[in-house]
């Protein structure tokens, strides 16, 4: 049972790793090697080496335009790199089209939520299931061949909807949900495929603060169930709260890796965020204090 894994085990697997870009992990599920991608002469991604620890929550941070989303796109087959290779569970993912990456167990969500507006919430969920017999043209014409499986899928979808507190919206169009609910739906839908790695692109962006905690809880639950989570996020509080390990990107390169607390104090990271010659205004601590204040006044 994956859920029985003690919480500390994920954090423990990062224990004592060197805090340098490209450091090898104890049990890597994803490995990226010398991947570059340029847009009109500008290097959007230039990653020498990156490993993602199995069963952990890895935060990917960096200033705007650092290449985080492009790296996501490359790893999930939504974009093709100019050079480089990457693998998943030891098998190469280079040149594997997006839908096959997903079928192998690496699913992603998008920065701009992609709820399928004119499908109901439950249809959105059922779409997420893989290996559906009824998705084959000829079988689709003979309902008895896919009905039993459909009933199983629907039951699973209903369970997940309850867990994500979307069960009351079950038969609404996805287009009628709020922004935060769409994020929840997208995450729940991704889980329908029973993935091994979940890649979340800014899961908290545009989510109202009331829903943030519940979303964070769901992300931690994924880890508890043994899944590997990689996520892109801008909110440092969120990053500190849930990540076991943080990878920092700037100008397409990975400039630092380490546990969240140490990363936040890292000089290079501060420079990357504020520019190397900034006028030494805010330290991370200052920023944290400010953020905390904001939260305090908001609630």
């Amino acid at each position: 049972m994956p859920g029985d894994l003690p919480l500390s085990s994920a954090a423990a697997s990062f224990e004592g790793l060197a805090q340098e870009p490209g450091v090898p992990k104890r049990d890597s599920v994803l490995v990226v090697d010398k991947v570059t991608r340029t847009f009109g002469g500008l290097a959007a991604v230039d990653v020498d080496h990156l490993e993602i620890q199995r069963g952990g929550i890895t935060g990917l941070i960096g200033p705007n335009g650092a290449g985080k989303t492009t790296l996501f796109n490359l790893m999930t087959g939504f974009d093709r790199p100019d050079t480089g290779s990457w693998s998943y569970n030891g098998g190469s993912l280079s040149g594997v089209p997006a839908h096959l990456v997903a079928r192998r167990g690496v699913v992603r969500t998008f920065q701009l939520t992609k709820a399928l507006a004119k499908l109901s919430v439950i249809e959105n969920m059922k779409l997420g299931a893989t290996k559906q017999r009824g998705e084959k043209f000829l079988r689709a014409l003979v309902p008895p061949t896919w009905r039993p499986q459909e009933i199983d899928i629907e039951a699973r979808a209903d369970d997940l909807l309850v867990r994500f507190k979307l069960d009351t919206k079950r038969d609404d169009y996805a287009g009628e949900l709020s922004g935060g609910q769409r994020k929840l739906l997208e995450m729940a839908r991704a889980l329908m495929s029973q993935p091994e790695v979940v890649m979340l692109d800014e899961p908290m962006a545009g989510v109202n603060p009331a829903l943030t905690q519940s979303l964070l809880g769901h992300v931690k639950d994924l880890r508890a169930e043994g899944m590997t989570v990689v996520f892109v996020e801008h909110d440092m509080d969120v990053v500190r709260d849930i990540s076991d390990w943080v990878v920092v990107m700037a100008a397409g390169k990975i400039i630092a890796e380490g546990p969240p607390d140490q990363i936040m104090a890292n000089r290079q990271v501060i420079d990357a965020y504020l520019g190397a010659h900034h006028d030494a205004a805010l330290t991370i601590e200052d920023e944290d204090r400010q953020l905390a204040d904001d939260k305090g006044t908001a609630s």
């Binding site: 939504f78 089209p97 997903a102 699913v107 399928l116 499908l119 779409l127 689709a140 014409l141 495929s193």
Partner: peptide, 29 residues
């Protein structure tokens, strides 16, 4: 009628709404 109430039709409608979403869920768009 048969096709559009089957999972096959569901994939088709998903592609109409958002190709990339369908792709990210393992469908061969």
């Amino acid at each position: 009628f048969l096709l559009m109430r089957s999972p096959w039709g569901r994939v088709l409608k998903a592609i109409r709404e958002d190709e990339d979403a369908a792709r990210s869920l393992g469908k061969n768009v």
